[in-house]
Design a protein around this nucleic acid. Structure first.
Lengths: 252, 252
DNA sequence: CGTTGGGTTGAGCTTGTTCAACCACCGTGG
DNA sequence: CCACGGTGGTTGAACAAGCTCAACCCAACG
């Protein structure tokens, strides 16, 4: 932070070398980039970076580094307990910002690439100054935080109240909706995460996830492919995920 | 919104009748009021209201109404599943803002007074305009959302990974810290919520909460009073809440 | 003085865990 | 080319955590 120190928002030397690839960016209309015209895009852009599956973009407790906007791939954000148990808090998809939350000068959670990932990298101070200086971006940051808060709260309710099969159904439905599927027609859904990732997201063991998959399959609600699920009965899936008074069963 | 409609932030007739009681407000230094000088306090203030134990300030799905800042009492914010199960997402204490989150023109969650409550009531549109118009308040809103996001994420990890006793220990420790207790000396902690409220917060049944209390008592970590707990061994409590490699046990 | 609401405890049952075997797939090296 | 080990996933059997149902206690209150 000595030679690179700047008080303004002007581009630094690294970046000004070549023009930002924002024009062809597949997520230039997402999150903070959404309202940006070409010149503000250029001003915000710094660099891109790639990670392979299994690598960490940042670890909980690491001294604060950059903020990331995912261009390609999926990131699992998780919290690890002192004894090694892991809770996956959220899966982040292209267009989303991660690595934002901080505690006392350190990253609060962990960000792990569960597929090959390419992300836009923002120096934290620059990102904060830039978003604070533009009212439209300030509002997007606020809206993103509110939306994430609602979404994590929903997840909390899933973990607190649903049985294993219900949790899996809720997860698949959530994935489905994230992919823009809302209808009642059978369709196929990519499923890039391992059983272990899903287990740590749903707060159950891997074997339980596997059994829950089998149960949904037995009910002819899904079919399993290599790295995807075929949703045969979206309405049935929704019924499992949002249990009406039908089944008075609770978590075991 | 017809007679009361105003485009500016000037006080409305209801409010201008008497001077705001902000001067003697016990939480005037909390959250959005924290940086306000007397005149901005007066400009933001609208009215106060009280609720008795068990009343709802707002229900999930209700058309959007005001935002509340708690002056006295505690509010349980929860989500209810279609079949009646309830997940308490958070307990809100004096100084905190609730009823903020909205979905599609409706309250996202439920706000229930679990003690007698007095709160400052803000018209949503006025509150949003006011906070958006002042940079210091915009920042406080952002920081509050980020803090809540982190806090709910922590709760998610508790529900996903901890056993019943560990969950209760984590809850008591959280309560303790909220009350400003950080030391290792025995001390007494108010416990105004019922076993049922705690159960729905921790994602277990009331009976399990009761057994967990008994277990902590058996370990001489706490003593139980009428509407309070005496924490005999804060370090022991912390050990239960943040399990080291010691106990390899997981949730059942 | 009986009733009501919150809390505790016990007994049996269910769910999900643990441990283990087993399978399919894939890349590597003999 | 096939044997090999590694990884990710499924399934079974025994076990344990937490749930359900029920009895019981106690304090507040009309």
């Amino acid at each position: 932070m000595s030679a690179a120190k700047r008080s303004s928002l002007t581009p630094d030397s690294r970046r000004s070398a070549k023009a930002p690839p924002c024009g062809s960016c597949p997520v230039k209309t997402h999150n903070v980039c959404q309202p940006l015209e070409a010149d503000r895009q250029q001003e915000l852009y710094e660099s891109r970076q790639s990670w392979s599956k299994g690598q960490f973009l940042y670890r909980a407790g690491d001294p604060l580094g950059p903020i990331f906007k995912i261009i390609i791939g999926i990131i699992a954000v998780s919290k690890r307990l002192p004894d090694g148990r892991r809770q996956v808090l959220d899966f982040f998809f292209p267009g989303e910002i991660c690595g934002y939350l901080e505690t006392d000068g350190h990253y609060t959670f962990e960000g792990e690439a569960i597929t090959p990932v390419t992300a836009c990298v923002f120096t934290r101070a620059r990102f904060k100054a830039f978003t604070a200086a533009h009212d439209d971006l300030t509002e997007i940051v606020r809206a993103t935080l509110a939306w994430k808060l609602e979404s994590v709260s929903h997840h909390t309710a899933v973990l607190g109240q649903l049985s294993a099969v219900e949790r899996l159904a809720a997860f698949l439905r959530w994935l489905d909706i994230r992919h823009g599927n809302h209808g009642d027609k059978p369709h196929t859904l990519p499923l890039p995460m391992t059983r272990d990732d899903i287990a740590d997201y749903l707060g159950v063991r891997m074997e339980t996830v596997s059994r829950a998959f089998s149960e949904l399959r037995r009910h002819k609600i899904i079919e399993l492919g290599e790295t995807c699920v075929r949703v045969l009965d979206p309405a049935g899936l929704a019924a499992f995920a949002d249990p009406e008074a039908a089944s008075p069963r609770k978590r075991g």
